[in-house]
Design a protein around this nucleic acid. Sequence first.
DNA 1: ATGTGC
Length: 479
Amino acid sequence: MQPKNLQRLLRALARQGLDVTYSNCTYSVRLVNSVDAPIAEVLLPEGFPVEAKALKQLANLANVRHPVGGCVCRACATPDFHPGDAGIAIGSVVETEGQVIPAAVGSDINCGMRLHVADLTIDEFLEKRDSFVERMKGDYFFGTRDVTMTARTMRALFQYGVPDWIDAMLDKPTGSVVKSDLEQLAQESERIFLGGSMDGDWKLAPAELIPDDGLVRDGGLGTIGSGNHFVEVQRVDKVENRALAYAWGVREGQLAFMIHSGSRNVGKYIGGMWRDKAKVTWPKNLKYPESQIFPLSVHSHPELVASYLQAEATAANYGFVNRLLLAELLRLRLREVYGDIEAPLVYDLPHNITLPEGQGWVTRKGACPAHIDQPVIIPGSMGANSYLMVGKGNPEFCNSASHGAGRVRSRFDLSRRGASQSEAELGLTGVDCITLREERRIEEAPAAYKPIQSVIDVQVEAQMVDVVARLSPILTFKA
DNA sequence: ATGTGC
């Protein structure tokens, strides 16, 4: 950006109550009237406009402090940063001590990414594409999937996630998923972030999903969800780090599939409930903070902090199992159509979660953990490349990376004006999107997002991550 | 993000 324009922009931001400086693709921001709050940093690819609303939301987040005790030690945002409609920007990371901020995770708890590879060439895949797609449409769109389980299995899922869910399934097998190899699933759980297991309390999960006995009727598990969620078949296009790709079982030319989904209605329920519970802990004699972001303080409500973390964990566990089941359905159909091929898990990790890190907690909303030597999965928008990366553990950006390319046009804007734009203008030419809803293709069209390459490049330059492999899209399921 | 809203 031209220095003259930049100066004008920074002055305009100052008039909106934001103290912003710029250096080396990084905006440093805080509220003008809050010099004691930590300065939050935002890395953005050069040439992209910075959104005042998102900067204001980030500065608000950095400013959250429970009057009884607790603080934000650090806040930052990743280059896919954009405003969120619940007062927290997507792409925000916040480190706290003595307090947790339920709203900073929001309702999409344990939204995350899962990647598998398969030894099948693209030509072999495309030969029977239509038959494969029809089966997947049945599973993902028409509810022909069958992932029933006993009430006891559901309690195990909420309490400790993937490993205990597998144990309970082995004990009392139910539903079509028993056709898959549960022992293999148990071995694979070491390739899931935290083993796919967080310390939950099933009593804090939505009660209607846990009957006293009998089978659970749950419409959420094994469903993609809407918005930017997807299941995509891809090709391993280019390996950039041969040693790591080999260690992770990834080779050029392989078929891959990538899953972007979360905890569905469970996270929505838990997130909404605890955002409200946090508000109630604000001291009665003090006026609410202007940001309307409420923390839970360890100093005043230690039992609520512990319960919130356990409640969040039930939703996180549900999210891990949901992605596992989405992958398992795909793997079952892959075997039906293409024969008995392996499709091993590469990695599964969340980008919407609170984790104990350092002296307190790190809460990421639309930001991927990128600790040193750990796998990172960054999806591009529909029709664009996705990336398997490795974390570099950069403390300046809270050991984090982006969770995608980042919106530049709102869903509303696309649904209102997108319909009148051509396929080419929306960047949809050549995109194979399987969906029952035409508006989904438009709302999530490539034109709604930044180009992924510049978002990847700026993070590599900032030493947050390195590229391991580039993946190109073959076809995308969007519900 | 959400069997949604503008």
